[in-house]
Design a protein around this nucleic acid. Structure first.
Length: 643
DNA sequence: GCGGAAAGTGCGGTACTACC
DNA sequence: GGTAGTACCGCACTTTCCGC
């Protein structure tokens, strides 16, 4: 790369980065042009908008109003960067940086006058750019001149829309979309340009706000420009040359001295040097304490060192939204002690300190400044559906984990941990206290704490009492004159040895008749159907006019109320049951929970093991006697729900 | 100044440990 | 096994702080 020496009158090299990247070089002197710096190499003109180079944009944004523009990037040619300052309608190139490390200031570069053009009439770079752009070369980007291009796009858009009104077609529609997209891109580029120039924090003003950025830039430039200075005598200096000399004199006085004498015999070095005290010397080889590490960490300024994500701690603490703070609490301070919570009882002091950290972070309280906590921590720890924030109290989480640990020990007594604890401390079951009431290991203390939580959860808590009461299955009373048929099927394997059974009771719950049948090897559905059929036949033989049939199999209810189908594998017995129901004047069929149908279930289980095909009971058998009395005496039955 | 919440303080009780 | 010391905990009350 050739580099020309600057001459005295070469300060007006300007590159108007308008639509055609017109280069205007108005300098006199030796033969020099941008072409000589590599611009005229084949395929050179590739101009990038500055925003296509984020690294350069961020590199230069905080320190310069100049925009880096990749002016030449070709294989085998030097990569050049020019920095363009704002002009009335474009950019003004100030200097070039090349990959070879050289820097060329265009203010000091000669440009050959047109009269001294080279004899081979080589095309200038701007001519090459213009030709390639006009030929639609996508490699040729545009620099600056957003306003000119905006006007052009808007004019084209107006023309296209006018044509669409007169004669719409698909080409115009697509063209309008393309132009609209291009216009949006220009707006974005313009906004980024002025955001870059205005040096304001675009993270805080990230909206499309070109006018604001533009105004900020102009105001800042006007504010930073020095128009006048006051000299040592207090006189204001306005002239530019006088200002230059004043600044020069000031700095000369600042970094020079008129004192010519100096001390010939300075103090010995050891007297001037700083001394290390004996205590400091002893501490030099001591290990770093946790307190020192904490002090060093907490001494970081909030906006000093950004984290791995590029954001400062101060930004997070000040600008995080409430959901962000909550998420951070849940993912950090609530998650860290989870492991210890699962195997030991955290001291109340530790729990309180963790909660204090969380609520202070939530409301913004720091060591330097206390902030008001608008809502109590207890309310914050409520569920979101109940008006809380969904946060969790550390103590409550600890107890919940320990209850889980206790439950595992009780359920998996063959587990090594359970066997060790039971052998050492004599744990029998959750309702009985341990044989040896001793403190024991931390693990044992955790199990004990979990026992208390389980007892509270499943027995003592008022909410748990309500919960269990809701699970009570009421034995519904029957209307006067109605009889109830409870039928059920039982099987030993599906299919396997199956049996069915049932009973008929009057409106007071008193026993009328019962039955059980050995169905043989059958499925559970077939056993259930046999039970219903036998019950209906028994009711007809007893001349019962009002019968309520209760089954605990919802599938059978669905089969009975489905449209008749001859293709179903159980269609014959289902149709038989339907016909039997028609023989009873008033017959209804309902679903009942298994707990409310336990007497029929017991009779069906008898049917699985009996040798006779069908057994009719005038009196309740001994196996169901107790269950029958419970049904008569109690109004509710606890329901077994798998957890 | 008021209201609300956290933090601090004091007291009593309990559980555990070390020691004799 | 008894005793002293210590740590922990819960409770009640007061103080502090902050926004309005």
């Amino acid at each position: 790369m050739r580099r020309k020496r600057p001459t005295s009158s070469t300060s007006n090299v300007r590159v108007e980065c308008n639509l055609f990247a017109e280069v205007e070089a108005l300098s006199a002197g030796a033969d020099h042009s941008c072409e000589n710096e590599g611009w005229s190499n084949p395929g050179i003109p590739r101009l990038y908008h500055f925003h296509e180079s984020p690294s350069m944009r961020y590199t230069f944004a905080p320190t310069s109003t100049l925009c880096p523009i990749d002016c030449a990037r070709t294989a085998g040619a030097e990569t050049g960067w020019c920095f363009a300052g704002s002009r009335k309608s474009g950019f003004s190139v100030s200097c070039f940086f090349f990959s070879t490390g050289e820097t060329v200031s265009l203010s000091s570069v000669n440009q050959s006058p047109p009269a001294q053009a080279k004899p081979h009439k080589k095309k200038s770079s701007q001519q090459l750019l213009r030709e390639r752009y006009e030929n639609g070369d996508p490699e040729v980007g545009l620099l600056g001149e957003h306003s000119g291009k905006k006007r052009q796009i808007l004019a084209r858009l107006a023309g296209v829309q006018k044509a669409l009104d007169e004669a719409p077609n698909s080409f115009l529609v697509n063209l309008e979309k393309t132009l609209s997209l291009e216009y949006s891109t220009i707006l974005l580029q313009e906004q980024e340009l002025w955001a870059l120039k205005s040096r304001v924090n675009w993270l805080l003003n990230g909206d499309r706000n070109t006018a604001f950025f533009h105004t900020s830039t102009l105001v800042r430039r006007r504010y930073n420009k020095i128009h006048q200075l006051k000299d040592l005598m207090g006189n204001w200096i306005y002239d530019f040359s006088e200002l230059q000399s004043l600044v020069q004199r000031t700095f000369q006085c600042l970094y020079s001295t008129e004192q010519l004498c100096s001390k010939l015999h300075p103090e010995p070095f050891f007297q001037q040097a700083m001394h290390v005290s004996e205590e400091e010397a002893n501490n030099l080889d001591s290990s770093v304490s946790d307190q020192e590490i904490k002090q060093a960490l907490f001494s970081f300024k909030p906006f000093k060192a950004p984290g791995p994500d590029g954001l400062h701690a101060g930004w997070k603490s000040n600008l995080l939204s409430l959901p962000g703070i909550i998420t951070l609490i849940q993912s950090v301070t609530e998650a860290i002690p989870t492991y210890f919570m699962q195997c030991m009882v955290l001291p109340a002091k530790v729990c309180n300190q963790i909660d204090r950290l969380n609520r202070n972070f939530l409301w913004g309280t720091t060591t330097e400044r206390r902030k008001m906590h608008l809502v109590s921590w207890a309310k914050c720890c409520k569920e979101k559906s109940k008006g809380g924030l969904g946060l969790k109290s550390t103590k409550a989480r600890n107890l919940a984990f320990l209850a889980k640990l206790n439950w595992r020990v009780l359920q998996n007594k063959d587990d090594l941990r359970a066997r060790v604890l039971i052998a050492k401390y004599g744990l029998t079951n959750p309702s009985n206290p341990p044989i040896r009431n001793r403190v024991g290991s931390p693990n044992w203390a955790a199990v004990k704490a979990g026992t208390e939580t389980l007892s509270h959860l499943f027995r003592d808590c008022p909410k748990s009492i309500i919960f269990w009461n809701r699970l009570q299955i009421p034995i519904e009373a029957m209307s006067v004159g109605w009889c109830k048929l409870n039928s059920d099927g039982s099987y030993l394997g599906n299919p396997g040895a199956a049996g069915s059974g049932g009973l008929i009771r009057d409106c007071h719950g008193r026993w009328i008749k019962g039955y059980s049948r050995s169905v043989g090897r059958a499925s559970s559905v077939l056993a259930e159907l046999w039970g219903v059929r036998d019950g209906l036949q028994l009711a007809i033989s007893l001349n019962i006019d009002c019968l309520e049939v209760e089954l605990d199999a919802e599938l059978l209810i669905h089969l009975f109320f489905s449209p008749p189908s001859s293709n179903h594998v159980y269609s014959s017995i289902i149709n038989d049951c339907r016909w039997l129901m028609t023989q009873i004047p008033r017959c209804e069929m309902h679903h009942a929970y298994r707990e409310a149908n336990r007497v029929a279930d017991a009779l069906a289980r008898i049917g699985c093991f009996q040798s006779d095909a069908f057994v009719l009971y005038d009196y309740p058998p001994a196996q169901v006697d107790v269950l029958l009395e419970l049904d008569v005496s109690e109004l509710t039955v606890p329901r077994v729900v798998p957890l």
